[in-house]
Simulated assay, not measured.
Amino acid sequence: MATDVREIFVTGLKNAHAMENQALSIMKPQVARIENYPEVAAKLEQHIRETEGQITRIEGVLDSLSEDHSTLKDMALSLTGSLAALGHTVAGDEILKNSFANYAFENFEIAAYRSLITVAELGGFPAAVAPLTANLDEERAMAAWLNDNLRTVTMRFAALREAGATAKV
């Protein structure tokens, strides 16, 4: 069973590494396009830095297990993230679509880290719990910020649109 749990854990870590690369490929194009929502841009820039730290933490856990991330998974999920970000650029309500998608993605990441922490505890990898918990805490904070600011973003979008200004981003 220990071998199976280790395999599950390593696979989950590789998936989390790819997931965080996907997050970067979603957020970076978004932040580059934002003009009318400076607080959203600032929060995305902060979370990009956090995400880069999360990747480093995951790599540290993988290194401690003498494992490496999956370049193929990283590339595949980065591509899908880029395509998702691109898909929203044609929407008249791009900032809203991005807000919804980001909130959903943060909650996906929260679930992934909760599961990884459980497997780390089951598999006897106590050194992995702290870095994974740090990642989880950052994802929870970002999801909470997105939730707390959705009304403000929506109201600004509606006001800009009503005033005839560019309201997309």
Rank of each mutant, 00 (worst) to 15 (best):
V90G: 01
A104V: 15
Y103K: 06
Y103Q: 10
S70F: 11
P126G: 06
I117M: 11
L122Y: 00
V90D: 01
Y113N: 13
A85E: 05
G123S: 06
A101F: 15
K97H: 13
A128H: 00
M75V: 10
S70W: 11
S70T: 12
T118L: 13
A127W: 00
P126N: 10
A91L: 15
A104L: 14
Y113F: 15
A84H: 06
V129S: 01
G92A: 11
I95L: 05
E109Q: 15
I110G: 02
P126C: 06
S70P: 11
G123A: 08
R114W: 08
E94N: 09
A84C: 04
L79F: 11
A85I: 12
D93W: 04
H88K: 05
S70Y: 10
I110C: 08
V129W: 01
N98D: 15
N107G: 11
G87S: 09
S99K: 00
L77P: 01
S82N: 01
S70K: 10
T118D: 14
L122M: 07
R114M: 15
L96A: 06
N102W: 02
L96D: 11
A84I: 08
T89N: 05
A112M: 14
R114F: 08
K97L: 13
G87W: 12
N98V: 13
F125L: 05
L79A: 09
A104H: 11
A101L: 14
A85Q: 04
A85R: 01
N107K: 14
S78D: 01
A91Y: 13
D93N: 14
L96C: 08
S99A: 05
G124H: 00
A130R: 02
D93K: 08
G123T: 03
L86F: 09
F125S: 05
E106A: 06
L77G: 01
H88A: 04
P126Y: 04
S115D: 10
L79G: 06
L116K: 12
T71C: 00
P126M: 04
H88W: 07
V90I: 14
L79S: 05
F105T: 06
A120T: 05
T71A: 10
Y113T: 14
G81F: 03
L116N: 07
S82K: 02
A120P: 13
A101V: 15
A84W: 05
L116I: 15
L122H: 00
F125H: 12
S99M: 04
L96V: 09
V119T: 13
E109Y: 14
L96T: 09
F105W: 14
A85S: 13
Y113M: 14
E106F: 06
G124Y: 00
S115Q: 09
S115P: 05
L83E: 07
D74K: 02
G92Q: 12
T118K: 11
S78W: 02
A120L: 11
Y113A: 10
S70C: 13
E109H: 12
T80R: 07
Y103S: 14
E94L: 06
L79Q: 04
